[in-house]
């Protein structure tokens, strides 16, 4: 008797460890402009629970778009995209409740300047509290406790009442990390979290991210430019080039040939200016 395609896929996923996967992509394509080549063209990609993944690649390779796709800011044009068991494909409606299970750390921190450290972190739990009561500033004790615990985790207890606009860049990124910890996210997406920080702070922040991901068994996917930092703080590296995965392996196996494959520029015909092209935020 011949096995159905779906059954075959299930058997394959169990054999390859994909049953533990939090993100899986098959033939996923995404365009900002239909007349141009896809910004993302991923044949097959699986990321498992608790993995610490660094996405590297030249500017415009599709790193930010990949994170935006996972976070639901953009929808794929074709292919199968499954996140935390939910189909996020072309036709399926992504449930709103999925948002709170995926935390996002931004390059520019995206804190609310006038709010205190505690408020910024507590508001990470907005998806978990009663919406009506929260509008009047009422948060249950357990949520406040979770926020305080997250602040302690990132060593900012002494700044808890400080307004966000009085903090340094490193402290702001720590607040952003505490916000996703308070959110109890199962996946943390970090889009170039260190590009606005000096090298010492960058090391510090990636160390913190990697550490919390390991301790809480949270999947971490971070876009970084520096391959040395990616190797130091991630278990696995995905190299993107022109929207395609050109490297996907353990971080310690990354060598100079791989880096050339990922970063070395291709010889291209001269660009023709296309005024109809949509803006690609990954550029």
């Amino acid at each position: 008797m011949e096995l159905s395609v779906e059954l075959k896929r299930k058997i394959h996923s169990v054999q390859s460890g994909e049953a533990n996967s939090v993100i899986s992509m098959d033939e996923v394509r995404f365009h900002y402009n239909r007349s141009a080549p896809p910004v993302l063209d991923i044949e097959h990609l699986v990321i498992n629970r608790g993995e610490r993944v660094a996405v590297i690649g030249p500017s415009g390779a599709g790193k930010t778009t990949l994170l935006r796709l996972i976070n639901g800011y953009v929808q794929p044009d074709s292919g199968d995209l499954k996140i935390l068991g939910y189909n996020n494909g072309v036709t399926s409606n992504r449930p709103k409740s999925l948002n709170r299970r995926i935390g996002f750390i931004f390059q520019h921190f995206n804190l609310i300047d006038r709010a205190t450290v505690l408020e910024n972190v507590l508001w990470g739990r907005l998806g978990r509290v009663n919406p009506l009561l929260s509008l009047f500033g009422w948060f249950p004790q357990k949520d406040k406790k979770a926020a305080r615990k997250a602040i302690t985790e990132v060593n900012l207890e002494d700044q808890i009442g400080q307004r966000a606009d009085n903090l340094s860049g490193g402290q702001m990124q720590r607040v952003a990390i505490a916000r996703v910890l308070a959110q109890e996210a199962e996946i943390i997406l970090a889009d170039e979290p260190i590009s606005n920080l000096d090298p010492a702070l960058a090391d510090d922040i990636l160390g913190l991210l990697s550490n919390v991901s390991q301790r809480y068994n949270v999947t971490l996917i971070m876009n970084v430019h520096q391959s040395q930092l990616a190797q130091r703080y991630a278990d696995r590296i995905i190299g993107l080039r022109n929207g395609r995965v050109v490297y996907d392996n353990a971080s310690h196996l990354l060598n100079s040939n791989d880096l050339r494959t990922i970063f070395e520029p291709e010889v291209k015909p001269p660009l023709i200016f296309n005024s109809n092209a949509k803006k690609d935020p990954s550029h």
Binding site: R100, F109, R114, R125, L126, P131
Partner: peptide, 28 residues
């Protein structure tokens, strides 16, 4: 600023929460 609104959206906030915490706090 749109960034904090995206952050609240990512935390699972609904529209009224985004207005209350994201917009009113910023422009109050």
């Amino acid at each position: 600023r749109q960034g904090p609104l995206e952050a609240l959206d990512s935390a699972g906030a609904n529209l009224s929460q985004r207005v209350r915490f994201g917009i009113l706090t910023q422009v109050g």
